[in-house]
Amino acid sequence: MVEVVVFAVAAAACLVGAIGVVLSRNPVHAALMLVMTLFGIAVLFVAQEAHFIAAVQVIVYAGAIVVLFLFVIMLLGVDRAAELSLDALPAQRWTAAAFGLGGAAVLVWLVAAVDRLFKGAKSLALETAGAASAGAGSEPTDYVADVSVLARSLFSDYVYAFELTSLLLIVAVIGTVILARRSYGADQHGADGRRADQHGADQHIDASESASTGTTSEAGR
């Protein structure tokens, strides 16, 4: 009973948030709706006894990623309601609708397939779960086991994937720093870039390109 209520409330929060992200005209409101969806998913994780994943969901997604979204929205000053009557790419709406419907169809198919799979493999799944809890030597709902199991698989079976992911993140950070770093030898370009922002996207790209070449020459020196 309690589980059904929790699921209903959390799922409703997820759905309302997701629809709100699409329908909000104000980017900040859309980001807040996204936070609502993320919180709903975190509650669903807690309902599944995946406490650690729920905490990470809140800390990383709600606490860091959407905050960065908001930073970008606020600092770029695009926090005005979008003008929807002028559409540069009229075809994108139809394309988006087609892709959305296709995605929904794939999702329904996946759920049905997984459901069929699990109906057949239910006894097997229960068996392995029992074996795992017997191996851990404690009751299966004990949470400490949950974290240590996660850590063990992350740092033993999947250690290469884990390390490669962190390497990828470092590469991304360094790349961002190099692209975003204002080159002090090329202050003129930087100012051009800012002015061009108001004129048009093409000029802006040109200016930032020249600014970035300035950066590379500076770095090469």
Binding site: V35, V58, I59, G63, A64, V67, Y143
Partner: peptide
């Protein structure tokens, strides 16, 4: 005494950023 314990503090302090920012 949630199983995630002290992570709740980190989660709350990262959500508190929203109050200030918004």
């Amino acid at each position: 005494d949630p199983p995630i314990g002290i992570l709740l503090l980190l989660a709350m302090s990262s959500v508190a950023v929203y109050g200030v920012m918004l």
